[in-house]
Design a protein around this nucleic acid. Sequence first.
DNA 1: GTCATTCGCGTAATCGGTAACGCAAAGCGA
DNA 2: TCGCTTTGCGTTACCGATTACGCGAATGAC
Lengths: 337, 337
Amino acid sequence: MAAVRLKDIAKDLGVSTVTVSKVLRGNPEIGEKTRARVLKRVRELNYQPNMQARGLAGGRSFTAGLVVPDLVHPFFGEFAKSLGGALRASGLGLMLASSEEDPEIEVQEIRTLLNRGVDVLLVASCQTLESESLFFGDGARPLLLIDRNFTKIGASFVGSDDVQVGEMGTRHLISLGRKHVAHIGGQGMSPAVDRQAGYRKAMAAAKIKVPANFVVTRDRIEESGDSVGYYAMQELLSQGARPDAVFCYNDLSALGAMKAAMQAGLRIPEDIAFVGCGNLRYAEYLKVPLTSIDHGTERLGVAAANLASQLAESPLSLAQTVLLEPRLMVRRSSVAE
Amino acid sequence: MAAVRLKDIAKDLGVSTVTVSKVLRGNPEIGEKTRARVLKRVRELNYQPNMQARGLAGGRSFTAGLVVPDLVHPFFGEFAKSLGGALRASGLGLMLASSEEDPEIEVQEIRTLLNRGVDVLLVASCQTLESESLFFGDGARPLLLIDRNFTKIGASFVGSDDVQVGEMGTRHLISLGRKHVAHIGGQGMSPAVDRQAGYRKAMAAAKIKVPANFVVTRDRIEESGDSVGYYAMQELLSQGARPDAVFCYNDLSALGAMKAAMQAGLRIPEDIAFVGCGNLRYAEYLKVPLTSIDHGTERLGVAAANLASQLAESPLSLAQTVLLEPRLMVRRSSVAE
DNA sequence: GTCATTCGCGTAATCGGTAACGCAAAGCGA
DNA sequence: TCGCTTTGCGTTACCGATTACGCGAATGAC
């Protein structure tokens, strides 16, 4: 069952390979009769074009490359899934790489993907905002940033409106009558910065002053998973003025924070309410179901796929930005049953 | 910053492209002096080989293809992550496709991956065992089955020893003094079959008869997520003889089953104990932390990557089977604190 | 000092497909 | 019927690499 090539079909029919190629490519200069014969034989032999050769000759590989920091992170998993499906519908394959949250691996993976000839590069970068000047592809292929934006680069972007995310979560807590809303934040990336900005915006709109020690950010390098939130919460609690609500940068940190709060004997949500971001699956099975902000990850994937296939076809088209509206999912961590 | 090609380096140095290629390939027939000059220039220009061309000429693409049923499923997410990292270490890229649990899409994705010239194909198939004769690649590329085995095909396999998984979970429940251990099973795939076999083996070893209505399997098609377990548990409870323990096919079904049990007023684990499979993340944050069997997903990924890179290098080597030992993670769903 | 090796590198063909051009036959108007 | 445009398909070159071979020069044996 060796692969059947263009040449085989051509020889079979007594035509040239070019003719067959033209038929498959939809070139109108081939006569109806020949076209029909070719198409028939193509189906009979179940011909499948060799994409490597096609890529070499045509300068396109019909493949998109995706670099994510961590495939296990529910957001990126869902995103990759949704993206892959939508890309397939556009005839694009997906090459996947994980940077393991390491900027150097990220650069390496990007290089590898480019060498493999991807038509468009999607990156959820783990570079910090300061390193904006760093290597981001070779400029020859369109770049599409995911979730984390680097405005100075001028690349396309698909993600959530994170300022709104921050506002929405914080406003929810305020609307519940909480006056002492703290924030456990992330570091370096645009979502972290923007969500904190949204938090401050909502607080300002409600005319509530934000005490300096109410915003805690911890370096993600030294800690992993939920421990960031855990230690951040301990830090908050060790201070005099205790918050009655916390808006957390993401769900995992919210989990850690809730753990620390419960260990300190606080009741959720009576004594202290929590809001996370990401709306991770199983959120409803948790000990305390978590109120969270949903990014509409599937829609993000579809939007990214659309933009990607457009960029793959016309690499020189202008950079575009797609921002999706977040949605608040209210659960027990903020509202008692 | 257009891509630098072999030809550019060659022209620069006044040698032929073949010479450069030979140097990079480690061919010993090139003199020390030339070799040094070439390597120097290669580094200066930061030359990156075009993998498409390399693949065309050499018949290898240095790429592995992976087809999973659902990237969001924690097992496959973790597996893909681990696999990708380990493959990278072997110089292989990863092309990812998701079949969405649809056998037809699966076949389509496999075709696509083969057209793209992957050197080896890894598939966690969603075909049922009966459809073994179905299309599984073209036979020209080595096939590596993941998690779900099809013994008749004679392909390589990497997965858990699922009979042992079933035994281990069931034995744990029996060792806790439970006499009425039921089983909520999956359908069609080898893990489901094997785990049920393990369950029966453990029951037989303890000389406990398995009532016919103590084994419930439901068709996964009509239901999704945890609802399988939910309805299965209701089915179990609606019968006269009530179990005091349930060994579940996977964690999600265990979650659903526990939900149904709690709704029926049963206390976990006092009245009824549960064991799941998969040891999904967040298991410890659950309302009732779930005792589960860990597959060592990361190790599976690494093992698969090793085998895959070996198969990619010598496609004709014999099919191999790698079975990893499962580990029991005891939590509150089976043992009170 | 010859002849046979080895060494070191280049030439040509190939992988499977695509794009630019060429060219014969058919169509058409006058 | 002559000449000009289409129509329909084939030739050639090329994408960027690799492998098989060829050949001149340096090397060594005698």
